Computed example of a mutant assay.
Amino acid sequence: MKGFVDNIERLTEENGDFRRVLYTGHNLQLVLMSINPGDEIGEEVHEDRDQFFRIEDGEGEIWIDGVCNRVKADDGVIVPQGARHNVISTGKTPLRLYTIYGPPEHVDGTVHGTCAEANTSHEHFDGVTTE
């Protein structure tokens, strides 16, 4: 099959991994995330890529250049390239979301089960796409 077709809401809500790359194209990458209560992705800046977040479950904060944006299910957020940002899970259940990077950020097929595992990994997109 060419491309990616599936029920993204179901996949996101069922995902228990901190980070799971589902599909990598030349210009976009689809990634599921599940951030446990009290955890965060850590402050970062992508100088060369935009990022879209869609919240499917839980509550959290997405900080963009020092501004706190409280988020919950059904919210969407775009972080433009060059913006300092962080995603923090503030609810009692995991913050479950999917994110789209343009261009890709991670190696295709990457799975980080936990935030700690992701923090020790230093992988970055290597130019290899899903298909």
Results as ranks from 00 to 15, higher is better:
H106F: 14
R84P: 07
I88H: 11
S89Q: 13
P103E: 12
P103D: 08
P80G: 07
A83K: 07
I88P: 07
T99E: 02
L97F: 03
P94T: 09
E105K: 14
R96P: 02
H85Y: 12
H85F: 13
T90N: 13
E105R: 15
T93P: 02
V111Y: 00
T99R: 02
T99F: 00
P103S: 13
P103V: 10
V111T: 01
Y98F: 15
T110S: 11
P103G: 08
Y98S: 01
K92S: 15
G82S: 10
G82E: 11
Y101M: 06
A83S: 15
G109F: 07
V87C: 14
Y98L: 02
T90K: 14
T93I: 14
L97K: 01
N86S: 09
G109A: 02
I100K: 04
L97C: 11
V111D: 00
E105L: 13
R96C: 04
I100L: 14
G91L: 09
H112L: 03
V107K: 01
H85T: 11
P94F: 04
G109S: 00
Y98E: 01
A83N: 13
G82D: 11
E105C: 12
P104C: 06
N86R: 13
G91N: 05
S89Y: 06
R84S: 15
G109T: 01
G82K: 10
T93Y: 03
H85G: 13
G102R: 05
Y101T: 14
L95C: 07
I88F: 12
I100R: 04
G91E: 07
P94W: 03
D108M: 03
R84D: 08
V87Q: 12
T93K: 10
V111Q: 00
H85S: 11
T99I: 06
G113V: 05
Q81G: 08
